[in-house]
Amino acid sequence: MEPFVTLESVAAPLPEAGIDTDVIFPARFLLLLDRAGLGRHLFHERRHARPPGSPPFVLDRPPHDRARILVTGPDFGIGSSREQAVWALADFGIRCIIAPSFGEIFHANCFRNGLLPVTLPPADHARILAEAEAARPLVVDLPAQTIRLAGGERIGFAIEPHRRQALLEGLDEIALLLREDADAIGAFEARQRAQRPWLFLTREQLSHFDDLTETPANG
């Protein structure tokens, strides 16, 4: 995972409330098997199905077409758990999203992909949104946990320590778990197997699936 330390960029303002992951990444593109290149479907309808006469979508309009930061309204990323929403944002070049609140699964997915979701209280959020609309660059400083405005003002933000660490170092959580916690997992599993054996399917139970037949592959 690409580490996230500091990021300097203009921020694209998208102050809608409740943008769900179906809007971020429409379901019909979920049929794609690869995670690379999904940026072309990001906000697909918002970008490509504009009402006649309306200006291009904010991410298609200079200077915000080069934005690596997105400032949205509350409840960004609610709904479906599709990680494709995060992959599409990352592929498009977005590394940081600033909102008053996030959908929880989306929020967790961001950290797995080197994206920083920043939650700000309304007054700070409004301040950042104004900067985004004026296309003044921001500096997101993760070690300092601040966003620096062009005028020098600093706005602080909170983040879970382990997630901050993972972003800073580009840590891979799965590798970390296997390296540091494999013994603990094995020990827990053995204990649970003894204490709550019904949580582990028996060979006899699994034989319920012995008669499963495969569909001829034609894909």
Partner: peptide, 12 residues
């Protein structure tokens, strides 16, 4: 959960 978390469950 997201797909990356699915991978974590597969692996760990």
């Amino acid at each position: 959960i997201g797909a990356s978390e699915c991978e974590s469950v597969f692996a760990t």
